[in-house]
Amino acid sequence: MPSLKDLRNRIASVRATRKITAAMKMVAGAKLRRAQDQAEAARPYAERMERMLASLGASQQTLAGAPRLLAGTGADKVHLVVVLTADRGLCGAFNSNIVRQARRLIQDLVNQGKTVKIFTVGRRARDQLRRTHRDRLIESLENVGRRQLAFSDADGIGRRLLAMFEAGEFDVATMVYARFRSAISNVVTTQQLIPVPLPAAGAATGDDLGGAVYEYEPSEEAILLELLPRNISVQLYRALLENAASEQGARMVAMDNATRNAGDMINRLTLTYNRARQAMITKELIEIISGAEAI
């Protein structure tokens, strides 16, 4: 049986914890809104780029000399897994879910006899994967978009990936990240980055071109050669934004739960405290009374 003083101390400390988690929840909520706005604002560019790619790709599929970024290296030996997580924890199972999915993917690839390399963005992915896949981890970044994610952050990663691809360090790149669905749910998603999967052509443009065909300036290949690397950066940017929003959403939920748990705990502790206090008073009374009767 803990003493009254112990109970008082515990109640005070749980109260303090609750204050912190409640504040963190509010901060996460505010950041979530910002991240969502940013993701919203980035959507038009990605959509339009997809439309362009679709209309270009429709004619490229038949072309023999398609760029390597589109056609691949012709091999399927070395896979690069790009794992995007947050830098910070305290957001429930958010990071673990992404890492678990990444591990499964890596295991699958290894079982198929592929060579797997890992590129992590975010401290949590690095820390968790380093334990089990230290020899496969080739590069890790952290503090990406610490204050606010800029396109140049994603572009930097994209260029890095491209340089590695050009150097023949891998054949296929896949990224794992959490797609934002709502403040309380996100879906861990695996997406192939390189070779670039083409969006389904067809009703891509949504415009009535009156049967006319696109003209290309300077040429189809030249545009594609510029568009494909950009598209990788855009995909990364989108994934990073979705991830950031998901992270804040997950943190908000986790902190909400923590706040509620702390509240429950305070109630329980208060009850125990009051009982103990009552028992103490009763005990003292009995002592006094029996003392008085003895005289």
């Binding site: 696109y214 003209e215 290309y216 300036e217 545009i223």
Partner: peptide, 19 residues
């Protein structure tokens, strides 16, 4: 300002993709 020179776009322009 297209890569191959400036081009003006008026309504009804033919479909074009350019850098």
């Amino acid at each position: 300002p297209g890569t191959d020179g400036d081009f003006g776009v008026l309504p009804g322009h033919s479909p074009l993709l350019s850098t």
